[in-house]
């Protein structure tokens, strides 16, 4: 990620300038240090999926889609459905994003998004059971980065959450009545997904000892540390990931204060654009 050998001239020129701006408490795009870029959220963009969302965060573009299949529950959770999150960069995203098996960065991103949704208990997985111990619904969250200009965690989380909030899923009682489910699953009566919480992730970068909200790609590369924090609707912390770098103890708590503020702002935005909760 920080390897400049794989960067283009334009990227390196932007990276070289980041700290020059930050020193003056300014950013290249004119934003305040604690300001998000323009956020666009559109739901229901892919009608073939059970739920979907398109999110742009400045020039970062993410699409998430929700699908269901039937499957066997895990033996330790016979009365719970299964949640699977898979995220990938599409090769359209950037000069360095190439087709192929998921990279460690893509897997980390998927797992960070997955953890936020899972640990907030956003979805009541017990409502995804068809026959306890035998048959449950598998919920797939697939998201793709179409264009990468940084802060993919926040963007992917917004896309996944917005898609889930607008998802209607096959009524498990009706699925139980099916004989050959796989082919007919999409025709089963659909009901809103049982939503219990709405997790929100805010990522902060540290550059020259200053805290930067919603870092762009050059800011991420120039940053000394990057921390993603996910909150539940009751302002509990439900997932964290130090994506890179090191933090002083006091920095951690200063960041948490900023995140708590920003998290509210983001949540209001999602609720106003998508509804739910």
């Amino acid at each position: 990620m920080r390897d400049l050998r794989k960067r283009t001239l334009s990227d390196i020129l932007r990276i070289k300038q980041v700290s020059k701006f930050i020193r003056e408490n300014k950013r290249m795009d004119g934003r305040k240090l604690d300001e998000y870029r323009d956020i666009e959220i559109k739901t229901g963009v892919v009608k073939k999926a059970y739920g979907s969302a398109y999110v742009s965060l400045g020039d970062t573009i993410v699409i998430a889609g929700i699908h269901f299949e039937t499957g066997t529950p895990f033996s330790d959770t016979p009365d719970q459905g299964i949640l699977i999150t898979e995220g990938e960069f599409l090769p359209t995203a950037s000069f360095y994003a190439e087709p192929g098996p998921p990279t460690e960065e893509e897997i980390e991103l998927s797992r960070v998004v997955d953890r936020g949704i899972r640990e907030s208990e956003m979805i009541d997985l017990s409502k995804l059971v068809i026959t306890p111990g035998e048959k449950v619904l598998k919920l797939f969250i697939d998201f793709n980065i179409l264009n990468d200009d940084g802060n993919l965690v926040d963007a992917a989380m917004l896309a996944a959450v917005s898609a889930l909030l607008t998802t209607k899923y096959p009524n498990p009682e009706k699925v139980a009545e099916l004989e050959n489910d796989r082919a007919e699953l999409k025709d089963v009566e659909r009901i809103p997904l049982p939503i219990r919480d709405i997790p929100m992730t805010v990522t902060i970068g540290i550059i020259n000892n200053r805290y930067i909200v919603d870092p762009t790609l050059p800011e991420e590369i120039a940053a000394d540390a990057l921390l993603s924090v996910t909150h539940t609707k009751n302002d509990e912390i439900c997932a964290m990931q130090l994506l890179r770098g090191e933090l002083d103890y006091n920095q951690l708590f200063e960041i948490l204060n900023i995140v708590l503020e920003k998290n509210k702002e983001l949540r209001e935005l999602v609720l106003s654009k998508v509804g739910g909760g």
Binding site: L4, R5, R7, T8, L9
Partner: peptide, 18 residues
């Protein structure tokens, strides 16, 4: 031109000039 140094060779540097 403006270039960014992006690699070392045996006897010099590779420079991205866009």
């Amino acid at each position: 031109v403006i270039g960014a140094v992006v690699g070392y060779g045996n006897s010099g540097w590779f420079v991205d000039i866009g």
